[in-house]
Amino acid sequence: MNNSLSLFHITRPSVLKENAPLLIMMHGYGSDENDLFSFASELPDDFFIISVRAPYPLSPYGNAWYAINFDAEKGKWNDKEQAEASRDLIAKFIDEATENYPVNKNNVTLLGFSQGSILSYGVALNYPEKIKNIVALSGYVYHDILPKDLENRDYSNLNFYCSHGSVDQVIPVDWARQTPTFLKSLNIKHQYSEFPVGHGVAPQNFFEFKNWLLERI
């Protein structure tokens, strides 16, 4: 546990002593670094796994990557400035992690759930040179935190695994269904799957993205 870096985090070292593929986990709104870390023991031993805690504490517990405000007049809205700050903080943390741990900076995977998934799209599309693979679970593309010159960027190294629950009561599946079309428009490699669950990760979903990762390790 090295907390001198810019995000509090926990780690599961790789069986490889150097140049290990790095997997960074980003939890959802109101959760913490322990949530997705429960997957760590089931994921390939080659991965050096880091699970990070989002920077904004919530009351009474949990953390967020950015505030979600429930305003009577505006409805539900996101704090764009906080989202952008978190996006850039994750990018900075990737650099710190690759300097401080025995990992391969050219083999970095982001695994995000819900708000962590939304941030993983933002980080990958703003900083594609830092990322190789993205596992985006139960999220969507938040266009306000993407670069304005998407069409001029080189995304040829990126590969996305995206999944969603078909009866998700938190993030509508219709939002997620727009993702494949969007990624295709940018010629980004991707796979999209749906599972008959709500806002969560079904066992068959876990096995599918685990196998997807195994093929790309």
Rank of each mutant, 00 (worst) to 15 (best):
L125W: 09
S4R: 06
S138H: 01
P172C: 09
I94Y: 01
V201I: 15
P102H: 09
S4A: 12
I68A: 02
N34R: 15
K184W: 04
A202Y: 04
M25H: 03
F93D: 05
D95H: 08
E42Q: 14
D35V: 03
I90Y: 01
N69S: 11
W212C: 09
E81V: 11
L89G: 03
N19T: 07
F93W: 14
Q191R: 14
Y29A: 02
G116R: 06
S38M: 10
L58E: 13
L158Y: 10
D45M: 06
I68D: 00
Q169H: 14
I90L: 08
I68M: 09
G198I: 08
K17T: 13
T109Q: 00
Y61P: 01
V15T: 06
G200N: 11
L16F: 05
Y155D: 11
S41M: 09
D35Q: 10
A67H: 14
K80C: 03
N211A: 12
G122L: 05
D154V: 10
S41D: 14
N69A: 06
P44C: 10
G198A: 14
L146Y: 04
V167M: 11
R216C: 10
E33D: 11
Y66W: 12
Y121Q: 07
F160K: 04
S14H: 05
A136W: 02
G116H: 05
Y161S: 09
I90T: 02
R87W: 01
N107C: 08
F37T: 04
P147M: 07
L186C: 08
K130I: 05
G139I: 07
E194S: 12
K74H: 12
K17D: 13
L16T: 00
S185G: 07
K148L: 15
G28A: 12
L137S: 07
I50F: 03
V103F: 08
D45A: 13
Q191D: 15
N211L: 11
Y140W: 12
T98Y: 04
E18S: 15
A91D: 01
G165L: 03
M1Y: 13
G62L: 05
N107P: 05
E33I: 01
I171Q: 06
Y127F: 15
E84I: 14
L119W: 07
S185N: 07
Q191L: 11
L150E: 09
E73Y: 10
L22T: 05
D154Q: 15
I10A: 06
Y56H: 06
Q169R: 13
L23Y: 02
N205V: 04
Y161V: 10
E96W: 04
A202V: 01
F37Q: 11
Y192C: 04
D144P: 04
H199C: 03
N187I: 08
E96S: 06
D79G: 10
C162Y: 04
F37P: 00
G165E: 02
Y61T: 13
D144M: 07
F160E: 06
F70G: 00
E42N: 14
D88Q: 07
P196M: 09
